[in-house]
Computed example of a mutant assay.
Amino acid sequence: MATKTPMPPPETRPAIELAASDRVAVIAGSGRLPVNVAAGLNAAGHPPFVVITNGEEADVDELTSYDHATIELEHMADLIPLLKRERITHVVLAGGIGRRPRLTRLKPSRYMLTTMLPRLALALGKGDNALLSTIVALIEEVGPKVVGAHEVVPDLLAIEGAITRAQPKSADYRDLRAAFSAAKAIGALDIGQGAIAIGGRVIAVEGVEGTDGLLARTASLRSHPRLSGKKRGVIVKCAKPGQELRADLPAIGPQTVKAAHDAGLAGIGVEAGHSLILDYETVRSSADALGLFVVGLPGDTA
């Protein structure tokens, strides 16, 4: 696999064309994705309506500069009439939801009891991807079209090639291929989206702890006798096979870069065209400062 020179952010047309009368709601969970999506929409002349999910670790101060409302996870049945009142035409699900609704605190309504709850309960037993697909279907049944963050802010989408001064070495590509294969395998089981390889073999995969937890665990494993003397290594994130691509695309941001460096890794690989790079310039400058590479991998890397 040949190395490539650093590339700028992609400058492509949005996958969907928004009309002047369209209004986009960003359902904001945790992390930087809601901030990036809202800022991208605003810069494109489509100021968003932000629905802040109360209790998630979102960057609320940056989101409340837009028209917004706050909603409890247990009151999600209120989301549907809210979208109607605000005349929302498109919805972006952005950011993570770190917990499940507490059933004892659910706000009862006919719609919640007869429509939402039975379908969500069934989906919960089938995994995260089934749950996301059900949420998308429930929203679209009442009118708004659910779109992916990358469809309205295409600059977030990772493209193929390295974006940093540092480039993967030949041994790093062996790690990238191993981690990519493992990430796809656990993704097919709806377990996680990331894997870490050091010295040509996979040493850890992402579970319910998420990417930050995976990297913290890897840092603690550096002293393990089986990793003694092993240098470099990579983390790779890619979309799950058959994933609902309008929600929960794998993403990296500045925190990923720092955590990868703390774990002693040489770089980060993401699946080009199916992953997001948040706070792009900060990711690139931070990685350059720490000597890490960040590279977009083609879908046939494995």
Rank of each mutant, 00 (worst) to 15 (best):
234 V>D: 04
281 E>L: 02
12 T>M: 14
67 D>K: 09
42 N>Q: 13
40 G>I: 08
202 V>F: 08
142 V>P: 00
233 G>H: 04
239 A>I: 03
173 Y>N: 07
98 G>V: 10
243 Q>T: 07
268 I>H: 02
66 Y>G: 04
78 D>P: 01
77 A>R: 09
128 D>G: 06
296 G>D: 08
298 P>H: 09
285 S>A: 08
240 K>Y: 01
55 G>Q: 05
144 P>Y: 07
32 R>M: 13
198 I>W: 08
93 L>K: 03
206 E>F: 13
225 P>D: 05
185 A>R: 12
209 E>Y: 06
266 A>P: 08
46 H>N: 10
122 L>P: 02
256 T>R: 02
145 K>Q: 15
89 T>Q: 13
288 D>P: 03
150 H>N: 07
152 V>N: 00
213 G>W: 12
133 S>Y: 00
43 A>D: 13
58 A>G: 13
12 T>K: 13
119 R>N: 10
137 A>H: 13
188 A>K: 15
90 H>I: 11
157 L>M: 15
3 T>D: 10
207 G>P: 01
154 P>D: 07
255 Q>T: 09
196 I>L: 11
33 L>M: 12
235 I>S: 05
245 L>K: 11
3 T>K: 12
6 P>R: 06
212 D>S: 15
138 L>Q: 07
21 S>D: 14
88 I>G: 10
123 A>W: 06
160 E>H: 10
281 E>W: 00
134 T>A: 04
294 V>E: 03
41 L>W: 04
273 G>M: 01
209 E>T: 09
221 L>A: 13
66 Y>Q: 08
56 E>Q: 14
243 Q>L: 10
45 G>E: 05
149 A>M: 12
176 L>A: 13
135 I>S: 11
63 L>I: 06
284 R>T: 00
80 I>V: 14
24 V>N: 01
49 F>T: 01
110 R>V: 15
276 L>K: 03
155 D>E: 15
73 L>T: 14
107 K>V: 05
132 L>S: 04
125 G>R: 12
12 T>Q: 15
126 K>T: 00
160 E>R: 14
97 I>E: 01
108 P>D: 00
27 I>V: 14
222 R>T: 06
261 H>T: 00
51 V>Q: 01
263 A>K: 03
17 E>K: 07
270 V>D: 08
124 L>K: 09
136 V>M: 04
151 E>A: 15
22 D>S: 12
239 A>D: 06
197 A>M: 13
234 V>T: 11
197 A>H: 11
44 A>Q: 12
85 R>K: 15
150 H>M: 02
139 I>R: 09
10 P>W: 02
7 M>C: 14
163 I>K: 03
102 R>I: 14
131 L>V: 07
67 D>T: 12
10 P>L: 09
153 V>H: 07
65 S>P: 10
251 A>G: 06
155 D>I: 08
237 K>Q: 09
145 K>A: 15
122 L>C: 02
212 D>T: 10
174 R>F: 09
36 N>K: 06
